[in-house]
């Protein structure tokens, strides 16, 4: 009898979990062994797995994400840092913005031997700049400029923002002076002069 109950439970619990747990549990590859290997367990692990699953759910390729996750956890990012990177990825993806620049920024920091905490801080700042830059590109589109390569334009604008330009300032300069003469070299390769002006 007991065995029977146990067997039923064994089948039903995962089934129930499938419906009740956050979408995170849909990830096909389990990251638990990887996390445990790096000392992440218990509640932390559950939360991380949830987040990871959500990122997969949002449409980031699982293969790509797993490889990235493996690399960064091996580099020494702790649970909190991993969560922050995943959250940022999720947010960008949900907003329809390129998330790969975030992955690349993390890898860049790793290649440059930067400590994990700093890697994450810089990456999140970069992520924020990307969001702001997307706003700038959108604003320019609304003003009638055509975008030939959105990701390129966003990354380029994020670069200008990192140099201290303000979003409004960029829009204003491009609108009043035209893409070519706004003083943002390279932008004209990704942004066309629209109907305005």
């Amino acid at each position: 009898m007991r065995r029977k109950v146990a067997r039923i439970l064994l089948i039903t619990i995962p089934l129930l979990a499938l419906f009740l747990l956050p979408p995170g549990s849909f990830a096909t590859v389990d990251i638990s062994p990887l996390c445990e290997k790096h000392g992440i367990k218990g509640e932390d692990l559950t939360r991380l797995k949830g987040l990871y699953g959500e990122v997969v759910e949002s449409g980031v390729s699982e293969e790509e994400l797993y490889r990235f996750f493996d690399d960064i956890i091996s580099y020494g990012l702790d649970c909190r840092q991993l969560s922050r990177v995943l959250e940022k990825t999720l947010r960008l993806k949900k907003e329809g913005l390129p998330y790969r620049p975030v992955f690349r920024k993390v890898r860049e920091g790793m290649a440059k031997g930067v400590p994990p905490g700093k890697v994450v801080d810089v990456t999140l700042t970069w992520g924020k700049l990307l969001e702001e830059a997307a706003g700038v590109v959108r604003a320019l589109e609304e003003k009638g400029f055509s975008v030939s390569d959105r990701e390129g334009a966003v990354i380029l604008v994020a670069g200008y923002l990192s140099r201290g330009y303000l979003p409004d300032e960029i829009v204003e300069r491009v609108v009043t002076r035209g893409v070519k003469y706004a003083g943002f070299s390279g932008l004209e390769a990704f942004l066309g002069q629209g109907g305005q002006r």
Partner: peptide, 11 residues
């Protein structure tokens, strides 16, 4: 290179 940008890590 025609464009340079701070990498955020100090370089």
């Amino acid at each position: 290179a025609p464009e340079q940008t701070p990498d955020g890590f100090g370089g």
